[in-house]
């Protein structure tokens, strides 16, 4: 990385991602306690771990397609979902900024390597779920 400003940008992205995520998590937790649960599950169902495990009350039960309608209806569970996915995407932005930076440096060897990393990440997110679900 020749241009060291990119490292400052990465630093801001990391900090910003964590801040957005934590604020959504805290909001979600408050909403969840106020509404006694979310997305059709009650708090006592979610906090009885064995019950939750056997009845599939987990991340699989929260459809990501309903994320924005869930956020609109102020459902605490979807706020937590949004917070956790922001967390997952935060480090990916580092690889993405790195990719752009390598491209502008004409460092094509590392452009390819960053592409492989991004491919692995997308593979884990989009392709593997089709086989395990």
């Amino acid at each position: 990385m020749k241009n060291h400003d990119d490292e400052i940008i990465i630093s801001y992205f990391l900090k910003g991602g964590v801040m957005i995520s934590v604020s959504f998590l805290v909001l979600g937790v408050i909403l969840m306690f106020v509404q006694n649960g979310g997305d059709g599950f009650t708090l006592s169902q979610m906090s009885s771990y064995r019950y939750a495990l056997n009845h599939g009350i987990d991340s699989k039960a929260v459809p990501l397609t309903g994320l924005f309608t869930g956020l609109e209806s102020l459902d605490g569970l979807y706020f937590i979902t949004f917070g956790l996915w922001t967390l997952i995407f935060t480090p990916i932005t580092v690889v993405f900024i790195g990719w752009i930076s390598f491209l502008s440096d004409k460092n094509y060897r590392y452009v390819i390597m960053a592409t492989i990393v991004l491919f692995n990440l997308l593979f884990a997110m989009l392709i593997i779920p089709r086989f395990i679900a």
Binding site: G56, L77, I80, L84, P91, I92, L121
Partner: peptide, 24 residues
């Protein structure tokens, strides 16, 4: 963070993340 992001997304679809615990 990047390694954990890869594993976490697979965990998510497999239902390994309990939102009540993970938020805390």
């Amino acid at each position: 963070g990047i390694t954990a992001a890869t594993g976490s997304s697979i965990y998510w679809y497999e239902g390994y993340i309990n939102l009540f615990i993970a938020a805390a």
